[in-house]
Structures are given as C-alpha cells and as structure tokens.
Amino acid sequence: MNKSLIKAKFFATLALVILTLSFTLPMIAFHGTLNQIDAGKKDEVSSFSKTIWNLYNQGRYKSVTTPKDAHNNLEKMIDSSSEIGVASLPIWAVSLEAPNYPKEAFPEGIPVYFHFDGYSGEVHEMNTINHYVGMDPMWIGGIIEREIGIYALLALSLGIVYFIAYNSKFLNYIVLIPASLPLLFIADYSYWLYWFGHNLHDWGAFKIKPFMPTVFGDGKIAQFVTHSYPAIGFYLIVVISLLSLLAFFAKQKALKESNL
C-alpha cells in the first residue's frame, strides 16, 4: 500500500478515535437523560448512561451545593437534587468573580463549562446573575446547535470512516469538516456571546449598556470580573483538526502518486 495512503488512514483513524471517545460516545450515552431527570423519571435512566456519566465526570467540577459523597455518582446526584451537567468533555470555560461571591464559598468563582450538547458547572447560579443584568438564561442560545449536535457528530464520524475505507478525490474533502471544528466553535460561541450581550431586557435589576462579553481572556462586566478560556475539549478538537489536515494532505499526495 502507498505510504502516503497509510499515513492518511492512520491520521484519520486517530482523529476518529479522539472524536468518538471525547464527544460522540458520551453524547450518545447521555442523550435525553437530563430530560428524564427533569421529568422525575430517574428509574428510566439506563445503567449505561449512569456508567458513562460517572466515568466522564471523574475530577470534573461539581457545584458547591453538591454533597461530597455524591460527586461522580449520577444516582446520588439525582437523589440529592444536585446540579447535573452533560457527560461529554467541556470545550470552553467561563467564570465570574464578584464581591458578593466570596472565595470561601466559591473558590473558583462561578464557573460554567460549555459542551457541544449542553452545559455543566454552576449553571443555575450563572443564570441568576444573567437575570440580574437583564440577560436571558443560557439555554435560550444555541438550541439548534445542541439539538443537532449529536447527529452532526455521528455524520462527521461516518464521513471519516468513509474517508478511511475509500479512496476518491471527493471523499478526501470530507475531513476538512472536522479540520474546521475549532473555527466553527469559536465563531458560533462568539456569535451567541454577542447576541446575549446585545439583547438585554429591561427587567434586569442592574442596568448596563449592550456589550460584547469577553471571548478569550479576562474582562469586566459591571462589578463582575470574567475569565474565559478553552477547556480540555477545545484542545482535543484542535488535535482532531490537525490530524484531519495531515490526513487530507497525505491522501492528496497518495491520490496524485496513484493517478486516481
């Protein structure tokens, strides 16, 4: 087999494995589970969903109101009515610090983590803060993205499988989609930050002018200090992007060498 073709298949396989283990698998396993929990149907939550959630939440942030013995145990978190986030790896992390949130009570400020399929962290507290300044709750934004996310990633995974299995110029361009994931995420994330910051409501207790929240780095909104940085999931989609580009150029070289 052509060496360039072997490299292309190797890089694409690595990208597929990372995509599957980091995002697709936990998204499939946890799909619809939060709706079951919110509807009081905890008995309908499968043991597979619980196992995957417990595995992927090892060492992840839990709300300060979560009992210690419930950490990393979905069943106990449901029983204690703790705040439950999704299972997939977080892509971006935002936190707020303010005088009325002392370090003793909130050592990491008010952190919220953004995922392909939802949120985790102090989501309820963050929505309370948003309401205070006249901002919509976070779930208002990205509804379509969250709904189609799991299907988009499944289609993406299938596209990479086709890339690995077949050699054609057309299928070669499929891997440019996972290669663009970091840019697509940042563009979508930035758009919704702008939308939230420029669609403030009059019912906010604290009036502020429309603003653009900080996309990357540290900022200040009213009396809040904000921090916005990539989480582990973003670094992984960057790796997926680089592997996809390597696979693309290796396949291009192989196709030229084979005159396909």
Rank of each mutant, 00 (worst) to 15 (best):
I237H: 04
V94L: 11
A247Q: 01
S22H: 08
H198E: 02
F48V: 12
E125C: 10
Y113I: 03
Y119W: 13
W195D: 14
V45H: 04
Y189M: 11
S241M: 07
N259V: 14
V17Q: 05
E44V: 00
E97H: 13
L158N: 01
E75Y: 01
W53H: 02
I177K: 09
A15R: 01
V17H: 01
N100Y: 12
I221V: 14
M135I: 11
A39R: 10
L158C: 08
I84V: 05
P230E: 06
A250Q: 07
E108N: 12
L5W: 15
W192Q: 10
V123G: 04
V112S: 03
Y101D: 06
Y173A: 06
H124M: 10
H131N: 15
L16E: 00
N259F: 11
G233H: 03
A187G: 04
F185D: 01
D38I: 08
K41Y: 04
K76F: 08
M126F: 15
A155Y: 09
V225M: 12
Y101A: 09
F170A: 15
S120R: 04
L176N: 12
I148M: 02
Q58D: 15
H201A: 12
L245T: 09
Y61T: 00
Y56S: 04
S190T: 15
A12C: 06
I144C: 05
I91K: 03
S46W: 06
F48M: 06
W53I: 02
L55M: 13
E44W: 07
P111S: 02
P182H: 10
S190F: 13
F249R: 03
L158P: 07
I160G: 03
T24L: 13
I78G: 04
I221S: 06
I52A: 02
I208C: 09
I84D: 02
E75R: 06
F116N: 06
M138G: 11
I221L: 11
L14C: 11
N2F: 04
N2M: 00
G59I: 14
S228A: 12
R146L: 12
L21R: 07
I78R: 09
T33Y: 03
D136N: 15
Y101T: 07
F224A: 05
P67M: 14
F48A: 11
F211S: 05
T226V: 07
I129W: 01
A254V: 09
E104W: 04
N199L: 08
K7I: 13
G217M: 07
R146P: 11
T33C: 07
R146Y: 07
S180H: 08
A187N: 03
